[in-house]
């Protein structure tokens, strides 16, 4: 099938799913009660998982649907939370009473900067958008400077000021010594304007050891979190394989494996013919 046909089929499928969902909602029928939600959830979950096999039509469909739906969702969210509530609500509170703001004419500035960004659509005046970009980058550079200095430098430095010897507590003394040595050596590793040779090189190497040990701990912690997410998804699929859902995930898995298998056999046949 040509690309256009694929696009039409996909759009038709999305439209049909949307119509069915709206229909169920408007009839007051619970999606979960009839298992419809489980069918969609199983199809999209397994569609994304099918990427582990290889790029295929199920993955493409799930991916494009995910990207498209999320893009439109965020556009709608930004409009209602920022432009409608935060901008119009402050500039024209009488016309937008639901925003609950008082009039603040300072918001004309972001309105103008926003219009400057839209000037990109007219090439002859597109350069004006750089003003908005410059404003944002400059503003946040200034704002973040203070925050970084406070949290990443001042607070970290303050917390590194520890006694190396605590009378009566060997473990705490060792702990404090490791922290101070680790901080100093890691800082030495990030010295760029001096050659890392001799004692300096040894200290910076110790610094990278400290960094790698902390990355290892962070890696293990994060992987545990990811595994729990995976277990959550598997639980969903197991729940969706129940008789009350019409064996949604089981049927979808079987159908997907069958279609991917047929596809693999056909592509192997095409390769052999070629």
């Amino acid at each position: 099938m040509s690309r256009d046909v694929w696009i039409l089929v996909s759009l038709g499928l999305v439209a049909a799913l949307t119509a069915v969902t709206i229909g169920f909602i408007s009839w007051g029928v619970s999606n979960h009660a009839i298992g419809f939600g489980f069918w969609i959830g199983s199809l999209l979950t397994l569609g994304i998982f099918s990427y582990l096999y290889k790029d295929n039509a199920f993955y493409k469909f799930s991916e494009h649907l995910f990207v498209g739906v999320s893009a439109s969702y965020w556009i709608a969210t930004y409009y209602w939370t920022q432009i409608d509530t935060n901008l119009w609500g402050r500039l024209f509170p009488a016309q937008f009473p639901h925003a609950g703001h008082q009039q603040n004419l300072f918001y004309v500035i972001p309105l103008i900067l926003g219009l400057f960004m839209l000037a990109r659509m007219i090439p002859s005046i597109g350069w004006i958008s750089r003003w908005s970009l410059a404003f944002i980058v400059g503003l946040y550079a200034g704002l973040r400077l203070y925050g970084f200095l406070q949290s990443n430098i001042m607070e970290q430095t303050r917390d590194s000021l520890r006694p190396l010897y605590i009378p009566g507590s060997f473990v705490d003394s060792l702990n404090n010594t490791l922290i101070v040595v680790g901080v100093i050596c890691a800082l030495l590793y990030f010295f760029f304007s001096r050659e890392h040779t001799g004692a300096f090189g040894v200290a910076s190497r110790v610094g990278i050891f400290f960094l790698m040990i902390s990355f290892g701990a962070s890696f293990g912690f994060a992987v545990m979190g990811r595994i729990s997410l995976l277990i959550g998804r598997f639980n969903y699929l197991i729940q969706a394989s129940d008789a009350s859902t019409g064996y949604a995930s089981a049927v979808v898995t079987a159908g997907m494996v069958l279609l991917l298998g047929i596809g693999a056999l056909r592509s192997r046949g095409d390769t052999q013919e070629a």
Partner: peptide, 28 residues
């Protein structure tokens, strides 16, 4: 700017080293 930042780091290290000595003497 990179070289200047290195000097900033050196200053922080100096504060940490001096601070650690003072804290240890205080603990003793």
């Amino acid at each position: 700017s990179l070289k200047g930042q290195d000097w900033g780091k050196a200053m922080i290290m100096l504060i940490i080293i001096v601070g650690t000595i003072v804290e240890t003497l205080h603990a003793l």
